[in-house]
Design a protein around this nucleic acid. Structure first.
Length: 210
DNA sequence: AACCCTGTCAACCGCCCATAT
DNA sequence: CATATGGGCGGTTGACAGGGT
């Protein structure tokens, strides 16, 4: 099918790093009006940017619930486990880490974990249903998204209830103080993560989460 | 001090999917 | 049913910083 680029490049829209002024315009607009249509947003907010760029900036950086800072060893373990199952489905993985973005996790994987696993001789664990190019795998991946999002919410509830610092998923993995050992353990038991069935369609759940 | 190399991460690009018309 | 559109995702790039020589 394919589609035309969402941004009209003949209009000389600005690219590259965002300025504090642009950030402020975007945040102010979204906080008072909501993002609505991303395509129309730049115009309405007075930004000379493509809507897609605005969405990315908001979801990856400006959103108030973004959690910045280094990944904990529990988060590392969960990322490795989930990656072993779903492959490069960063949005699915990110759904289990409230406050973390797919971009952040993707970067973290590419710059830290990948290297770490390789050094340990584990190389990349074989991805699960997320292999590219396979339609049924894609479909399954969507369903898994729904499942993961449900689990993320359960995890949050469990966290709030038990005042524990790690979520339900992290709690399923063997705990250890050494992150190197943790990663090996994480890779060894990826299948422990999934258990709960999900009854909702992926679209509804996804949009509810967004 | 200058240069090079490497690591990090924000941002862009192209594609796919779901929905609207 | 076919096509157009908008949103979202994963891969990749490029700028910048820090360390080493």
């Amino acid at each position: 099918m394919g589609r035309a680029p969402c941004c009209d490049r003949t209009k000389g829209l600005k690219k590259g790093p965002w300025t504090p002024k642009e950030d402020k315009l975007l945040v102010d607009y979204i906080q008072t009006n909501g993002h609505g249509s991303w395509r129309l947003l730049p115009k309405l907010a007075g930004l000379n940017r493509c809507g897609k760029s605005c969405r990315l900036r908001w979801t990856n950086y400006l959103r108030p619930d973004i959690k910045r800072g280094p990944f904990t060893s529990e988060e590392q373990k969960s990322i490795v486990q989930l990656h072993a199952i779903v492959g490069n489905k960063w949005s699915m993985i990110a759904a289990t880490f409230p406050g973390r973005t797919d971009n952040e996790i993707k970067n973290y994987w590419n710059t830290h974990l990948k290297k770490q696993l390789r050094r340990m001789g584990l190389d990349e664990p074989p991805p699960g249903p997320g292999r590219p190019g396979c339609p049924s795998a894609r479909h399954m991946a969507r369903w898994e998204t729904a499942r993961l999002e449900a689990e993320a919410r359960l995890s949050l509830l469990a966290t709030a209830a038990s005042s524990s610092s790690c979520g339900a998923i992290a709690a399923t993995s063997a705990s250890s103080s050494s992150s190197t050992v943790d990663l090996k353990t994480a890779c060894a038991r990826p299948a422990d993560i999934f258990s709960a069935p999900v009854e909702l369609g992926h679209r509804g759940l996804s949009s509810a989460a967004r």
